[in-house]
């Protein structure tokens, strides 16, 4: 199948540098679904909205704008796979397009590096492109599946910055959304509803670095609720949430003495598995939590 939809693939930090399987899976699975993800050369950290936004919003705007301009220069919309990046890149793009004063301020800084924000592109999360029936849609995903993920229950963690704040997004309900569940069920898996589904993973806003125990206590509450609902694995759309749930479980065991062994996947990784990618093509061995028991169930 030839790709009809082409995007500049904005990688961020954690996916390419900690969970490269998500990057590889995104590229390969998208190709099968008619989305061509091309490299965005020279992109940097989005930059981290919690850290940079807290220090100086103006630097956050300018740094994010530089990444956006790289895609403008390619004449391509951006697709990305991280909620934190989505906050930076989507939100700054939107703000600069609609706020002249802000745009002029940012462009004054960008002029120093011969760049200009023009506002010519849009920014998308790969998840929303996969769900959009005009781009891919659930039906087409279902048709692309070779290995249905039968017999497992998945808890969906949406993450915060994909959907919230609602008035600055366009993805509907932030209290009980169900569209990622639809994406997961298209892979043949079951999904579970659990208490306080929309709660944060605990890592954002610089809290993971500032007070790890506090962040982990939030993560721990979510994991407890997922286990209570009978989940075999967590799926998310954000490598930072993934890191918090995955490595977080090791830290939770050290700090609180509680062990979950709950595998954590980015949606792209699950899609890859269901499309028949070999686990070795997804670098699942880099996950902190062993994915073998889960793989035995589905493969």
């Amino acid at each position: 199948m030839t790709a009809e939809h082409k995007y500049a693939f904005y990688l961020g930090c954690i996916a390419p540098n900690r969970y490269p399987g998500s990057e590889a899976a995104s590229i390969r699975t998208s190709k099968k679904l008619g989305i061509d993800l091309v490299p965005l050369e020279g992109a940097s950290c989005c930059p981290a909205p919690g850290a940079f936004g807290s220090i100086d919003l103006n630097v956050w705007y300018a740094m994010a704008a530089r990444n956006i301009v790289l895609a403008e220069q390619k004449g391509l919309d951006i697709a990305l796979i991280c909620n934190g990046c989505y906050k930076s890149i989507y939100e700054v793009n939107h703000k600069l397009k609609h706020n002249k004063e802000l745009r002029e301020g940012v462009n004054e800084v960008l002029k120093e590096i011969d760049m200009e924000f023009k506002g010519t592109i849009d920014v998308w999360h790969l998840g929303e492109l996969l769900y959009d029936p005009e781009i891919v849609g659930v039906e087409k995903i279902r048709e692309s599946i070779k290995v249905p993920l039968k017999g497992v229950k998945i808890a969906v963690h949406y993450g915060c910055h994909l959907l919230k704040p609602k008035k600055e997004r366009h993805l509907g309900s932030t209290e009980n959304p169900m569209w990622v569940e639809e994406l997961v069920e298209a892979l043949g898996a079951e999904t579970v509803q659990y208490r306080n589904k929309m709660q944060c993973c605990g890592a954002g806003g610089g809290v993971r670095g500032y007070d790890l125990t506090h962040a982990l206590d939030i993560t721990n509450e979510k994991l407890t609720n997922m286990v209570e609902a009978g989940a075999d694995a967590v799926v998310d759309l954000c490598p930072f949430c993934q890191l918090q749930f995955d490595r977080g479980q090791i830290e939770i065991e050290e700090k609180f003495g509680i062990k979950y062994d709950m595998p954590v996947f980015h949606y792209a990784e699950l899609l890859g598995l269901a499309q028949g990618m070999n686990p070795s093509e997804l670098a699942l061995d880099l996950h902190a939590i062993n994915t073998e028991p889960f793989l035995k169930k589905v493969l």
């Binding site: 919690g50 936004g53 929309m198 806003g205 500032y210 007070d211």
Partner: peptide
């Protein structure tokens, strides 16, 4: 002041 995870639940 540094314990906000910026989850935006309050804002929503």
């Amino acid at each position: 002041l540094w314990l906000c995870t910026t989850c935006y639940s309050c804002t929503d």
